[in-house]
Design a protein around this nucleic acid. Structure first.
Lengths: 177, 177
DNA sequence: AGAATAAGTGGGGTGGCACCCCGGTTAACC
DNA sequence: GGTTAACCGGGGTGCCACCCCACTTATTCT
Protein backbone atom coordinates (compact mmCIF):
# COMPACT_ATOMS: atom_id res chain seq x y z
CA UNK A 1 0.00 0.00 0.00
CA UNK A 2 1.34 3.36 -1.01
CA UNK A 3 2.13 5.90 1.69
CA UNK A 4 -0.42 8.48 0.51
CA UNK A 5 -3.16 5.85 0.34
CA UNK A 6 -2.38 4.77 3.91
CA UNK A 7 -2.48 8.38 5.08
CA UNK A 8 -5.84 8.99 3.38
CA UNK A 9 -7.26 5.82 4.85
CA UNK A 10 -6.36 6.98 8.34
CA UNK A 11 -7.82 10.43 7.69
CA UNK A 12 -11.07 8.88 6.50
CA UNK A 13 -11.43 6.53 9.46
CA UNK A 14 -10.74 9.40 11.86
CA UNK A 15 -13.27 11.64 10.14
CA UNK A 16 -15.81 8.81 10.08
CA UNK A 17 -15.36 8.22 13.81
CA UNK A 18 -16.02 11.90 14.42
CA UNK A 19 -19.08 12.18 12.18
CA UNK A 20 -20.59 8.88 13.33
CA UNK A 21 -20.18 9.96 16.96
CA UNK A 22 -22.17 13.09 16.12
CA UNK A 23 -24.79 11.75 13.73
CA UNK A 24 -24.91 7.98 14.14
CA UNK A 25 -24.32 5.13 11.74
CA UNK A 26 -26.51 6.64 9.01
CA UNK A 27 -24.25 9.66 8.62
CA UNK A 28 -23.64 10.86 5.07
CA UNK A 29 -20.58 9.31 3.45
CA UNK A 30 -20.07 12.50 1.48
CA UNK A 31 -19.89 14.48 4.70
CA UNK A 32 -17.26 12.07 6.01
CA UNK A 33 -15.20 12.40 2.83
CA UNK A 34 -15.58 16.19 2.97
CA UNK A 35 -14.36 16.32 6.54
CA UNK A 36 -11.44 14.03 5.76
CA UNK A 37 -10.47 16.35 2.91
CA UNK A 38 -10.71 13.69 0.20
CA UNK A 39 -13.02 13.18 -2.75
CA UNK A 40 -16.02 10.95 -2.17
CA UNK A 41 -14.75 8.62 -4.89
CA UNK A 42 -11.68 7.92 -2.77
CA UNK A 43 -13.81 6.93 0.18
CA UNK A 44 -15.90 4.59 -1.95
CA UNK A 45 -12.81 3.05 -3.55
CA UNK A 46 -11.22 2.35 -0.18
CA UNK A 47 -14.22 0.90 1.60
CA UNK A 48 -16.70 -0.10 -1.07
CA UNK A 49 -19.63 0.59 1.21
CA UNK A 50 -20.78 1.88 4.57
CA UNK A 51 -20.34 -1.44 6.38
CA UNK A 52 -16.61 -1.74 5.76
CA UNK A 53 -16.04 1.83 6.88
CA UNK A 54 -17.99 1.31 10.08
CA UNK A 55 -16.02 -1.85 10.76
CA UNK A 56 -12.78 0.07 10.45
CA UNK A 57 -14.14 2.73 12.79
CA UNK A 58 -15.23 0.26 15.46
CA UNK A 59 -12.28 -2.11 15.06
CA UNK A 60 -10.74 -1.20 18.40
CA UNK A 61 -14.12 -1.23 20.16
CA UNK A 62 -14.65 -4.81 19.03
CA UNK A 63 -11.14 -5.86 19.94
CA UNK A 64 -11.81 -4.44 23.41
CA UNK A 65 -14.97 -6.48 23.84
CA UNK A 66 -13.14 -9.64 22.81
CA UNK A 67 -10.23 -8.91 25.11
CA UNK A 68 -12.65 -8.44 27.97
CA UNK A 69 -14.09 -11.92 27.33
CA UNK A 70 -10.57 -13.31 27.36
CA UNK A 71 -9.90 -11.74 30.76
CA UNK A 72 -13.13 -13.20 32.18
CA UNK A 73 -12.34 -16.71 30.93
CA UNK A 74 -10.80 -17.84 34.22
CA UNK A 75 -13.31 -16.18 36.52
CA UNK A 76 -14.25 -18.62 39.35
CA UNK A 77 -18.00 -18.18 38.76
CA UNK A 78 -18.77 -18.81 35.07
CA UNK A 79 -22.33 -17.46 35.22
CA UNK A 80 -21.11 -14.29 36.86
CA UNK A 81 -18.42 -13.93 34.21
CA UNK A 82 -21.02 -14.28 31.46
CA UNK A 83 -23.33 -11.79 33.18
CA UNK A 84 -20.57 -9.25 33.59
CA UNK A 85 -19.56 -9.59 29.97
CA UNK A 86 -23.10 -9.24 28.64
CA UNK A 87 -23.68 -6.18 30.79
CA UNK A 88 -20.46 -4.75 29.43
CA UNK A 89 -21.64 -5.36 25.88
CA UNK A 90 -25.05 -3.79 26.39
CA UNK A 91 -23.53 -0.84 28.16
CA UNK A 92 -20.91 -0.35 25.50
CA UNK A 93 -23.41 -0.56 22.65
CA UNK A 94 -25.79 1.84 24.37
CA UNK A 95 -22.97 4.31 25.09
CA UNK A 96 -21.01 4.38 21.83
CA UNK A 97 -23.16 6.20 19.31
CA UNK A 98 -23.62 4.24 16.09
CA UNK A 99 -22.09 0.97 17.31
CA UNK A 100 -25.41 -0.87 17.67
CA UNK A 101 -26.65 -0.30 14.12
CA UNK A 102 -23.12 -0.94 12.85
CA UNK A 103 -23.12 -4.38 14.48
CA UNK A 104 -26.51 -5.18 12.98
CA UNK A 105 -25.37 -4.18 9.49
CA UNK A 106 -22.21 -6.15 9.93
CA UNK A 107 -24.19 -9.20 11.07
CA UNK A 108 -26.56 -8.94 8.10
CA UNK A 109 -23.55 -8.60 5.88
CA UNK A 110 -22.02 -11.81 7.24
CA UNK A 111 -18.86 -10.00 8.18
CA UNK A 112 -15.75 -10.82 10.18
CA UNK A 113 -16.26 -8.79 13.35
CA UNK A 114 -19.51 -10.55 14.17
CA UNK A 115 -17.71 -13.89 14.07
CA UNK A 116 -15.06 -12.61 16.44
CA UNK A 117 -17.62 -11.45 19.01
CA UNK A 118 -19.46 -14.75 18.71
CA UNK A 119 -16.38 -16.81 19.47
CA UNK A 120 -15.49 -14.58 22.40
CA UNK A 121 -18.96 -14.96 23.89
CA UNK A 122 -19.29 -18.67 23.16
CA UNK A 123 -16.37 -19.42 25.45
CA UNK A 124 -18.07 -17.75 28.41
CA UNK A 125 -21.47 -19.26 27.65
CA UNK A 126 -20.13 -22.80 27.31
CA UNK A 127 -18.33 -22.58 30.63
CA UNK A 128 -21.57 -21.45 32.29
CA UNK A 129 -23.41 -24.35 30.68
CA UNK A 130 -20.85 -27.01 31.74
CA UNK A 131 -21.22 -25.66 35.24
CA UNK A 132 -25.02 -26.14 35.01
CA UNK A 133 -25.92 -22.48 35.53
CA UNK A 134 -27.37 -22.07 32.08
CA UNK A 135 -29.59 -24.62 30.28
CA UNK A 136 -28.16 -26.33 27.23
CA UNK A 137 -30.87 -25.05 24.88
CA UNK A 138 -29.47 -21.52 24.94
CA UNK A 139 -26.91 -20.68 22.31
CA UNK A 140 -24.61 -17.77 21.79
CA UNK A 141 -26.52 -16.52 18.77
CA UNK A 142 -29.66 -16.29 20.90
CA UNK A 143 -27.82 -14.28 23.51
CA UNK A 144 -26.18 -11.89 21.10
CA UNK A 145 -29.41 -11.40 19.20
CA UNK A 146 -31.15 -10.49 22.44
CA UNK A 147 -28.30 -8.18 23.41
CA UNK A 148 -28.53 -6.50 20.00
CA UNK A 149 -32.28 -6.20 20.31
CA UNK A 150 -32.07 -4.76 23.80
CA UNK A 151 -29.39 -2.25 22.97
CA UNK A 152 -31.14 -1.17 19.78
CA UNK A 153 -34.55 -0.90 21.34
CA UNK A 154 -33.29 1.08 24.36
CA UNK A 155 -31.77 3.86 22.32
CA UNK A 156 -29.00 5.63 24.22
CA UNK A 157 -30.42 4.83 27.64
CA UNK A 158 -27.83 2.53 29.21
CA UNK A 159 -29.76 2.17 32.47
CA UNK A 160 -32.84 0.90 30.71
CA UNK A 161 -30.77 -1.48 28.60
CA UNK A 162 -29.13 -2.89 31.74
CA UNK A 163 -32.53 -3.42 33.34
CA UNK A 164 -33.83 -5.31 30.31
CA UNK A 165 -30.73 -7.47 30.23
CA UNK A 166 -31.32 -8.36 33.89
CA UNK A 167 -34.79 -9.58 32.96
CA UNK A 168 -33.40 -11.74 30.21
CA UNK A 169 -30.66 -13.19 32.41
CA UNK A 170 -33.12 -14.14 35.10
CA UNK A 171 -34.65 -16.33 32.43
CA UNK A 172 -31.45 -17.76 31.18
CA UNK A 173 -30.36 -18.81 34.68
CA UNK A 174 -33.59 -19.88 36.37
CA UNK A 175 -31.76 -21.53 39.31
CA UNK A 176 -30.23 -18.22 40.52
CA UNK A 177 -31.78 -14.99 41.72
CA UNK B 1 -63.19 15.29 2.61
CA UNK B 2 -63.80 15.47 -1.09
CA UNK B 3 -64.62 12.28 -2.95
CA UNK B 4 -61.53 12.37 -5.20
CA UNK B 5 -59.28 12.94 -2.19
CA UNK B 6 -60.82 9.97 -0.41
CA UNK B 7 -60.39 7.79 -3.51
CA UNK B 8 -56.74 8.80 -3.87
CA UNK B 9 -56.10 8.14 -0.21
CA UNK B 10 -57.40 4.62 -0.55
CA UNK B 11 -55.36 4.06 -3.71
CA UNK B 12 -52.22 5.22 -1.94
CA UNK B 13 -52.74 3.06 1.12
CA UNK B 14 -53.39 0.03 -1.09
CA UNK B 15 -50.29 0.73 -3.19
CA UNK B 16 -48.23 1.28 -0.04
CA UNK B 17 -49.38 -2.04 1.41
CA UNK B 18 -48.31 -3.76 -1.79
CA UNK B 19 -44.91 -2.09 -2.07
CA UNK B 20 -44.13 -2.42 1.64
CA UNK B 21 -44.98 -6.13 1.50
CA UNK B 22 -42.44 -6.48 -1.30
CA UNK B 23 -39.67 -4.15 -0.18
CA UNK B 24 -40.18 -3.47 3.51
CA UNK B 25 -40.77 -0.29 5.47
CA UNK B 26 -37.94 1.60 3.74
CA UNK B 27 -39.65 1.38 0.36
CA UNK B 28 -39.46 4.48 -1.81
CA UNK B 29 -42.38 6.85 -1.34
CA UNK B 30 -42.07 7.89 -4.99
CA UNK B 31 -42.49 4.27 -6.05
CA UNK B 32 -45.64 4.02 -3.93
CA UNK B 33 -47.06 7.19 -5.48
CA UNK B 34 -46.14 5.91 -8.94
CA UNK B 35 -47.92 2.62 -8.36
CA UNK B 36 -50.97 4.39 -6.94
CA UNK B 37 -51.08 6.52 -10.08
CA UNK B 38 -50.81 9.85 -8.23
CA UNK B 39 -48.11 12.52 -8.09
CA UNK B 40 -45.64 12.27 -5.26
CA UNK B 41 -46.76 15.68 -4.01
CA UNK B 42 -50.22 14.24 -3.39
CA UNK B 43 -48.79 11.46 -1.26
CA UNK B 44 -46.75 13.93 0.80
CA UNK B 45 -49.71 16.28 1.21
CA UNK B 46 -51.94 13.46 2.48
CA UNK B 47 -49.51 11.83 4.89
CA UNK B 48 -46.79 14.33 5.61
CA UNK B 49 -44.25 11.61 6.13
CA UNK B 50 -43.48 7.91 6.00
CA UNK B 51 -44.70 7.19 9.54
CA UNK B 52 -48.29 8.33 8.95
CA UNK B 53 -48.49 6.31 5.75
CA UNK B 54 -47.23 3.17 7.47
CA UNK B 55 -49.71 3.68 10.26
CA UNK B 56 -52.54 3.83 7.76
CA UNK B 57 -51.22 0.66 6.11
CA UNK B 58 -50.98 -1.31 9.34
CA UNK B 59 -54.11 0.13 10.94
CA UNK B 60 -56.07 -3.12 10.69
CA UNK B 61 -53.09 -5.18 11.81
CA UNK B 62 -52.86 -3.15 14.99
CA UNK B 63 -56.59 -3.25 15.58
CA UNK B 64 -56.34 -7.04 15.32
CA UNK B 65 -53.61 -7.25 17.93
CA UNK B 66 -55.64 -5.11 20.32
CA UNK B 67 -58.78 -7.15 19.72
CA UNK B 68 -56.84 -10.31 20.49
CA UNK B 69 -55.79 -8.86 23.85
CA UNK B 70 -59.43 -8.04 24.55
CA UNK B 71 -60.44 -11.65 23.87
CA UNK B 72 -57.74 -12.95 26.22
CA UNK B 73 -58.77 -10.65 29.04
CA UNK B 74 -60.98 -13.23 30.72
CA UNK B 75 -58.71 -16.22 30.22
CA UNK B 76 -58.60 -18.29 33.47
CA UNK B 77 -54.76 -18.34 33.57
CA UNK B 78 -53.48 -14.77 33.31
CA UNK B 79 -49.85 -15.76 32.70
CA UNK B 80 -50.90 -18.08 29.93
CA UNK B 81 -53.02 -15.33 28.37
CA UNK B 82 -50.05 -12.95 28.44
CA UNK B 83 -47.78 -15.61 26.94
CA UNK B 84 -50.20 -16.39 24.15
CA UNK B 85 -50.61 -12.73 23.33
CA UNK B 86 -46.87 -12.01 23.28
CA UNK B 87 -46.28 -15.03 21.04
CA UNK B 88 -48.99 -13.76 18.76
CA UNK B 89 -47.30 -10.36 18.60
CA UNK B 90 -43.85 -11.73 17.84
CA UNK B 91 -45.25 -14.07 15.25
CA UNK B 92 -47.28 -11.37 13.62
CA UNK B 93 -44.38 -8.93 13.50
CA UNK B 94 -42.03 -11.56 12.11
CA UNK B 95 -44.55 -12.60 9.46
CA UNK B 96 -45.86 -9.26 8.18
CA UNK B 97 -43.06 -7.65 6.21
CA UNK B 98 -42.36 -4.09 7.31
CA UNK B 99 -44.51 -4.12 10.42
CA UNK B 100 -41.60 -4.35 12.88
CA UNK B 101 -39.71 -1.30 11.64
CA UNK B 102 -43.02 0.53 11.26
CA UNK B 103 -43.78 -0.01 14.94
CA UNK B 104 -40.33 1.21 15.93
CA UNK B 105 -40.70 4.38 13.86
CA UNK B 106 -44.13 4.93 15.25
CA UNK B 107 -42.82 4.49 18.81
CA UNK B 108 -39.97 6.93 18.21
CA UNK B 109 -42.48 9.31 16.75
CA UNK B 110 -44.65 9.13 19.87
CA UNK B 111 -47.63 8.14 17.81
CA UNK B 112 -51.11 6.85 18.53
CA UNK B 113 -50.88 3.20 17.56
CA UNK B 114 -48.08 2.52 20.01
CA UNK B 115 -50.26 3.82 22.82
CA UNK B 116 -53.10 1.52 21.77
CA UNK B 117 -50.88 -1.56 21.81
CA UNK B 118 -49.46 -0.54 25.18
CA UNK B 119 -52.87 -0.28 26.79
CA UNK B 120 -53.94 -3.59 25.32
CA UNK B 121 -50.85 -5.33 26.68
CA UNK B 122 -50.90 -3.60 30.03
CA UNK B 123 -54.23 -5.17 30.85
CA UNK B 124 -52.86 -8.67 30.38
CA UNK B 125 -49.61 -7.94 32.21
CA UNK B 126 -51.33 -6.41 35.22
CA UNK B 127 -53.62 -9.41 35.60
CA UNK B 128 -50.59 -11.72 35.55
CA UNK B 129 -48.92 -9.56 38.17
CA UNK B 130 -51.93 -9.46 40.52
CA UNK B 131 -52.00 -13.23 40.25
CA UNK B 132 -48.32 -13.35 41.32
CA UNK B 133 -47.04 -15.03 38.16
CA UNK B 134 -44.97 -12.05 37.09
CA UNK B 135 -42.84 -9.90 39.42
CA UNK B 136 -43.94 -6.32 39.97
CA UNK B 137 -40.72 -4.82 38.60
CA UNK B 138 -41.63 -5.73 35.02
CA UNK B 139 -43.56 -3.16 33.08
CA UNK B 140 -45.35 -3.22 29.78
CA UNK B 141 -42.78 -0.99 28.10
CA UNK B 142 -40.06 -3.47 29.02
CA UNK B 143 -42.04 -6.28 27.51
CA UNK B 144 -42.92 -4.50 24.30
CA UNK B 145 -39.37 -3.27 23.89
CA UNK B 146 -38.11 -6.82 24.20
CA UNK B 147 -40.76 -8.06 21.79
CA UNK B 148 -39.74 -5.37 19.32
CA UNK B 149 -36.09 -6.20 19.77
CA UNK B 150 -36.69 -9.92 19.32
CA UNK B 151 -38.83 -9.53 16.23
CA UNK B 152 -36.43 -7.05 14.67
CA UNK B 153 -33.34 -9.04 15.43
CA UNK B 154 -34.83 -12.31 14.17
CA UNK B 155 -35.58 -11.00 10.71
CA UNK B 156 -38.38 -12.94 9.05
CA UNK B 157 -37.70 -16.14 10.98
CA UNK B 158 -40.82 -16.62 13.11
CA UNK B 159 -39.56 -19.86 14.67
CA UNK B 160 -36.42 -18.23 15.94
CA UNK B 161 -38.37 -15.26 17.26
CA UNK B 162 -40.70 -17.60 19.16
CA UNK B 163 -37.75 -19.41 20.69
CA UNK B 164 -36.19 -16.17 21.89
CA UNK B 165 -39.47 -15.05 23.37
CA UNK B 166 -39.66 -18.32 25.31
CA UNK B 167 -36.27 -17.55 26.83
CA UNK B 168 -37.43 -14.13 27.90
CA UNK B 169 -40.66 -15.43 29.38
CA UNK B 170 -38.87 -18.03 31.41
CA UNK B 171 -37.18 -15.07 33.06
CA UNK B 172 -40.26 -13.04 33.51
CA UNK B 173 -42.07 -15.88 35.27
CA UNK B 174 -39.35 -17.64 37.25
CA UNK B 175 -41.84 -19.69 39.31
CA UNK B 176 -43.22 -21.53 36.23
CA UNK B 177 -41.58 -23.75 33.65
C1' DA C 1 19.49 11.56 -10.83
C1' DG C 2 15.97 10.69 -14.13
C1' DA C 3 12.75 7.67 -16.70
C1' DA C 4 9.22 4.29 -16.59
C1' DT C 5 5.16 2.59 -14.51
C1' DA C 6 1.87 1.24 -11.54
C1' DA C 7 -1.01 3.04 -7.91
C1' DG C 8 -3.85 6.50 -6.35
C1' DT C 9 -6.80 10.72 -6.81
C1' DG C 10 -10.99 13.71 -7.22
C1' DG C 11 -13.93 16.72 -10.40
C1' DG C 12 -17.85 15.97 -12.24
C1' DG C 13 -21.59 12.86 -13.98
C1' DT C 14 -25.75 9.65 -13.24
C1' DG C 15 -29.84 8.29 -11.29
C1' DG C 16 -32.65 8.20 -7.29
C1' DC C 17 -34.60 10.15 -3.26
C1' DA C 18 -37.72 13.25 0.04
C1' DC C 19 -40.02 17.15 0.00
C1' DC C 20 -42.28 21.48 -1.88
C1' DC C 21 -44.31 25.41 -4.92
C1' DC C 22 -47.84 27.02 -7.74
C1' DG C 23 -50.69 27.28 -11.98
C1' DG C 24 -54.31 24.53 -13.54
C1' DT C 25 -58.36 21.38 -12.54
C1' DT C 26 -62.53 19.65 -10.44
C1' DA C 27 -65.97 18.35 -6.89
C1' DA C 28 -69.38 20.45 -4.08
C1' DC C 29 -72.77 23.69 -3.07
C1' DC C 30 -75.90 27.45 -4.31
C1' DG D 1 -74.67 26.83 -14.65
C1' DG D 2 -71.66 29.61 -11.86
C1' DT D 3 -68.74 30.25 -7.85
C1' DT D 4 -65.47 28.84 -4.81
C1' DA D 5 -62.59 26.28 -2.10
C1' DA D 6 -60.37 21.95 -2.14
C1' DC D 7 -57.39 19.18 -4.62
C1' DC D 8 -54.03 17.80 -8.09
C1' DG D 9 -49.41 16.82 -10.13
C1' DG D 10 -45.51 18.56 -13.31
C1' DG D 11 -41.49 20.04 -12.39
C1' DG D 12 -37.91 22.13 -9.21
C1' DT D 13 -34.50 21.96 -5.15
C1' DG D 14 -31.02 19.99 -2.66
C1' DC D 15 -29.20 15.88 -0.93
C1' DC D 16 -27.46 11.25 -1.45
C1' DA D 17 -24.63 6.78 -3.04
C1' DC D 18 -21.90 5.36 -6.39
C1' DC D 19 -18.89 5.50 -10.64
C1' DC D 20 -15.83 7.00 -14.79
C1' DC D 21 -11.64 8.63 -16.46
C1' DA D 22 -8.14 12.16 -17.28
C1' DC D 23 -4.64 13.58 -14.29
C1' DT D 24 -1.10 13.32 -10.50
C1' DT D 25 2.31 11.13 -7.62
C1' DA D 26 4.99 7.48 -5.02
C1' DT D 27 7.93 3.88 -6.05
C1' DT D 28 11.24 1.27 -8.48
C1' DC D 29 14.77 0.31 -11.70
C1' DT D 30 18.82 1.63 -14.12
Amino acid sequence: MRADARRNRDLMVAAAAEVVAEQGAEASLEEIARRAGVGSATLHRHFGGRVALLEAVFESSIAGVCARAEELRDHPEPLRALTIWLHGMVDHIATVHGLGPALVMSAEHGSQCHVRIRSAGRLLLERAQEDGSVPADVDISDLLTLVNGIALASGQDAGRAGHLLDLVIRGIAPAQA
